[in-house]
Design a protein around this nucleic acid. Structure first.
Length: 114
DNA sequence: AAGGTGACTAACA
DNA sequence: ATGTTAGCCACCT
């Protein structure tokens, strides 16, 4: 019944783990799948606070424009770009802005039954 | 307790 | 196309 922070964060982490290697998802997309379509910013924060040793593929979440938008010191844009490239995702360097073609790489989950 | 912040987004101009 | 604004909502001080 009660929806609470723990549930939301759990759902966010669960869903991010579902993003396949070589694909990316958007913050809003993860929020919507988690049942909180207006909570895109919370997804960003949830990824900001994951432990260093976490297996959560935080690098696969980018913004709606296909742009790497992290400002986190421990997870900087260059690191995110490098990991994504190593996973086979093309990252275009547009004057220091790292962009990904969502038409090509956006994760399109089949249906989630839960 | 109350206001500020931000790894967001859609809607405008 | 590029820039601005207004909603958003859990978390922080």
């Amino acid at each position: 019944m009660g929806k609470n922070k723990a549930n939301l964060y759990s759902k966010i982490y669960f869903l991010v783990k579902k993003i396949p290697k070589g694909r990316v998802a958007t913050y809003g997309q993860i929020a919507a799948l988690a049942g909180a379509p207006r909570a895109a910013r919370i997804v960003g924060y949830a990824l900001h606070v994951i432990p260093e040793n976490s297996k959560i593929p935080w690098q696969r979440v980018i913004n709606r424009q296909g742009i790497i938008s992290t400002t986190c010191q421990t997870h900087p844009p260059t690191l995110q770009r490098d990991i994504l490239i190593s996973e086979g995702v093309e990252v275009i360097n547009n004057k220091g802005v790292f962009q990904i073609d969502l038409k090509k790489y956006l994760w399109e989950p089949k249906f989630f039954r839960g």
